[in-house]
């Protein structure tokens, strides 16, 4: 089983990296690009627990270290083998 955690900056937090990438995309002619937000993906391999337990444990991991709630939100997905 695998937990995939997608961490993104909160909507009201400025993302200077995303802005720079947006400028580059527009510079390449992708005029339809109206916003870019850059986050990160964390994949965690799990063994010996049920998907429900995994969900609860992964959320705890997010809260205790993986995500900084001051500036970040996260999305959790569990992929069973």
């Amino acid at each position: 089983m695998k937990g995939i955690i997608t961490v993104v900056l909160k909507q009201d937090i400025l993302d200077p990296q995303g802005r720079a990438v947006m400028n580059s995309l527009q510079g390449l002619g992708y005029d339809e690009v109206q916003g870019v937000r850059i986050g990160k993906s964390i994949e965690i391999e799990l063994n010996g627990i049920s998907p429900d337990e995994a969900d609860a444990r992964l959320r705890k991991m997010c809260e205790s270290i993986l995500v900084n709630p001051v500036i970040e939100d996260y999305h959790l997905e569990i992929i069973e083998d």
Partner: peptide
């Protein structure tokens, strides 16, 4: 929190 500098 301390974020990336605004000018990158």
């Amino acid at each position: 929190a301390l974020q990336r500098n605004s000018g990158l």
